[in-house]
Simulated assay, not measured.
Amino acid sequence: MFVSVALLILIQSAAVVPVTVTSRSPQVQVEEFSDAELSCEFRTEKDNNPRIEWKKIDKDVSFVYYGSRFVGPFQGRAEIEGATVRLRRVTQADAGKFRCEVSAPQDSVTLGETNVTLTVLVPPQMPSCDVPSSALTGSQVELRCRDQHSIPPAVYTWYKDNRALPIRQPNATYTIDEFSGVLTFQTVSRADTGQYYCEARNRVGSSQCPGTHMQIDDLNVAAVISGVVILALLVLLCAFGVFYAHRHGYFSRHRGRSFWIPQCHGAAHISSQNLHRTEHTQNSGYSHPPKEDFKHTQSFML
């Protein structure tokens, strides 16, 4: 009797299973423009016709599957089987976190949910490469390569004359950051002259930029010295010209100018030549006596 009661309790407890929702693949990664399956599996306690909803969790929550139909951008390009959704030709706009919700009003636990994250993989496009056309020996030179679209982020390989440059090589005159795409020569030499290009690659593809020729030339020391000497001579010549002009009074003479000098009885116009003549007379120590104004008078004999 005791065994029968215990067995009955075990059967009843086994049948009472609240709604549960799980996913076989919580993390989904597919290439762009291929199909993606968002797995959702559920089990209910009593409710044989639960309500199934899919939502996309971004900055805002938007419906994917609601009211037994797909809505928004998923309409016409998705299908559902049970609670599992299959999206056709996914793009970057589809990437993100999705939530599968199962509502069972007749169960003791009425709601269950699970999340699925979709990552859309994108191969590198043609990277942008910055290679200088020329440089001088002994200078520091950087070559840059960058791809903005690859998912996951690309790693970079530099080539010189169609041969890959090793990232790590003893006594190398350069360094390569394979994650940023920067090739750095601390001091370039003529041996570094050649054609350079870069390849960006990730797990789904690769791409490369066109090659660019970089010419390394020696610094022309003789030409630099000649230029410095010529510049110094020009500076000295200009200084001598200024000194000569100042010495001969070209900066202090006023030729052909006239002035108006106020007098007690009016204004008299005096030319600059008269001024010079007056200065010369004063310098010689001689001055004309001033002319006296007089009136002619007559005397009368009384």
Rank of each mutant, 00 (worst) to 15 (best):
S4K: 07
S4R: 06
L7R: 11
S13V: 13
A15Y: 12
V19S: 08
T20L: 07
P26C: 01
Q29N: 12
F42L: 03
T44I: 01
E45M: 07
N49M: 04
R51Y: 09
R51F: 11
I52S: 05
K56M: 03
S62F: 11
Y66R: 14
G67Q: 02
R69A: 12
R69S: 15
F70K: 01
F70E: 01
P73F: 05
P73N: 04
A78K: 05
I80D: 01
R88K: 15
R89W: 06
V90Q: 02
T91D: 06
F98T: 03
V102E: 04
V116C: 03
L121M: 07
P127Y: 05
P132F: 02
S133M: 10
L136Y: 10
S139G: 04
Q140N: 05
P152M: 03
V155Y: 07
R168H: 13
E178V: 12
S180L: 09
R190L: 09
A191F: 09
Q195A: 14
Q195H: 11
R203W: 02
R203V: 15
P210N: 03
G211M: 02
I216Q: 00
D217N: 13
D218Q: 08
L219K: 11
A222L: 13
V228A: 10
L233Y: 03
L237H: 06
C238A: 15
A245C: 11
H248A: 04
G249D: 02
I261R: 09
I261K: 08
S271N: 08
E292K: 14
E292C: 12
F294D: 11
